[in-house]
Design a protein around this nucleic acid. Structure first.
Length: 471
RNA sequence: GGUCCCAUCGUCUAGUGGCCUAGGACGUUGGCCUCUCACGCCGAAAACACGGGUUCGAACCCCGUUGGGACCA
């Protein structure tokens, strides 16, 4: 039985796109499920766009999501980089040329463009007419591109793992340029050479490549290799059903990290975009690996739904390990100017526990947590409405009562109950002004929790401030 | 324009010829809980694109139409 070997082959664009992330995830799950190998290959032949930073951004995104990759045995670089393999592509081109499976084409890009335009105007299919195929005496001095001699015999059948049998008429496949006149190899060619070299068993990629598949299959044949199995994943679309892009909002996974999303939420959201296991929505990583199967990958495109991702994130914030959430919260607190390095881990943990059910992102949590870490609290308009002379007696009574109360949930609750009774006011009438005074807001965790976490000293100080201001 | 892919609630999906009066989840919405906001719990509205076949029976199989998407660019 042959080992499963798959790869994720992004081109470095400066970030990891959510669509790419899902492709990577499905490849990764497929490999880990079947105890195979998962490789990362950087398609950086387009040198103008491929900077080291852009490549680093992909690693960064992959690591954040927890998608680790294996080292390809035969490579000096890990992950594999196409720019390190230019010589190999050139050799293969030479081989095809020598075997008569490819030929030099002297048509300039301008000529080709002109002919394409003509064909289009004449309402004909714009495809290369193969005129340079017939040249008998190639001139090695003249700059030339190299074209692959496509066969136009019969049909090419792709037995796709997600789309089923897809049949192409060979006559629709024209002679593909495999090396440009400047000596640079082209995308479709490099992909095949790499996948052959890396002994990739299953090519799982976006279905925007489905139409490239027949010509790639012909290349496999010409190169004398058996083809891998293909699986073409549907696209991720924006709300308007067009391909997901920046105008639909955040498309880079790093952006979600910066917005306070948890990687497990992102992964869980992404895995449910196109894959399902009965009615189940929530999966841990080991569960995904165990249950993942290409058989349950859907074939229709999916719209990226930020609301569901948000819900997913809220869920993981609510149920995740509180200590870890606390660690992840730190940078977001720093972002608000809180010196999170100085704060007590226990204190931070209590804050997280108080806020986790009311925060959908870490960023939201940090914002809600601000008054626990800084005395520079601001009072919003709704809160100010509770800080009135009419409520002064309430604040006063609370202030006095709390002096002698231990700052723990139950005693605080008891204290508030007794004030509530003696003043004959509902608890809400008492809690809201106090909440406004100590947090500056009308929304917070339960008031007893807030006071406990804040501690006696700070709480009384804030109450005093308000009492003074109103007196 | 050609080629290819796709089509179940607004969205993600379950469904592989009888378990479907179409299930779950997000969102929306009514209520309960309640010191605020949330969480949680209970309930509601909401879909098989259309038209033909095949079959005793079709969301499911076949054909066509329409609509969307991708690639050629």
């Amino acid at each position: 039985m042959n080992q499963v070997r798959v790869r994720f082959a992004p081109s470095p664009t400066g970030f990891l796109h959510v669509g790419g992330a899902r492709t990577a995830l499905f490849n990764w799950l497929f490999a880990r499920h079947s105890k195979g190998k998962f490789f990362l290959r950087i398609e950086d032949t387009d040198l103008s766009r491929s900077t080291d930073e852009a490549i680093e951004a992909i690693f960064d995104g992959m690591r954040w999501l927890g998608l680790d990759w294996d080292e390809w045995e035969a490579s000096e670089t890990n992950p594999v980089r196409q720019t390190a393999r230019f010589e190999i592509y050139r050799e293969k081109v030479e081989t095809l040329l020598a075997e008569g499976k490819a030929y030099r084409c002297y048509c300039s890009p301008d000529e080709l463009a002109a002919r394409r335009k003509e064909a289009l105007e004449a309402r004909k299919v714009p495809r290369y007419d193969g005129r340079c195929r017939l040249l008998t005496a190639p001139d090695p001095e003249r700059p030339a591109a190299v074209r692959f001699k496509a066969s136009s015999e019969g049909e090419i059948v792709v037995d796709d793992m997600v789309k089923g049998e897809v049949v192409f008429d060979s006559r629709t496949v024209d002679d593909l340029i495999i090396m440009r006149s400047d000596g640079s190899p082209t995308y479709n060619f490099c992909v095949v050479v790499d996948d052959v070299d890396m002994q990739i068993s299953h090519v799982i990629r976006g279905d925007d490549h489905l139409n490239n598949t027949p010509r790639q299959i012909q290349l496999y044949e010409a190169l004398g290799y058996t083809q891998p199995r293909f699986g073409h994943l549907s696209m991720i679309l924006g709300a308007d059903k067009s391909r997901l892009s920046k105008r639909h909002g955040a498309t880079a996974v790093q952006q979600y990290r910066d917005e306070g999303y948890l990687p497990e939420a992102m992964v869980n959201y992404l895995v449910r975009l196109g894959w399902s296991h009965k009615d189940q929505e929530l999966f841990t990583l080991p569960e995904m690996i165990e249950k993942f199967s290409m058989a349950h990958v859907g074939s229709s495109a999916a719209i990226f739904n930020p609301d569901k991702l948000l819900w997913m994130n809220a869920n993981y914030i609510k149920t995740g390990d509180a200590k870890r959430i606390a660690q992840l919260l730190r940078p977001h607190l720093e972002g608000l100017g809180v010196d999170a390095g100085q704060c007590d881990p226990d204190h931070l943990l209590r804050v997280v526990k108080a806020l986790r059910e009311r925060s959908r992102t870490l960023k939201e949590m940090a914002e809600s947590a601000f008054y626990f870490f800084s005395d520079k609290i601001s009072f919003d308009d709704k809160a100010k409405k509770f800080l009135t002379v009419e409520n002064l007696p309430i604040l006063g009574a609370v202030r006095q009562k709390l002096e002698g109360v231990p700052f723990e949930h139950d005693p605080l609750q008891e204290a508030f109950r007794s004030i509530s009774e003696s003043m004959d006011k509902k608890l809400a009438k008492i809690a809201q002004p106090v909440r406004a005074a100590v947090t500056g807001k009308t929304v917070s965790p339960g008031i007893f929790d807030v006071l406990e976490i804040l501690g006696k000293e700070k709480a009384l100080e804030r109450l005093d401030d308000q009492i003074d201001a109103l007196s």
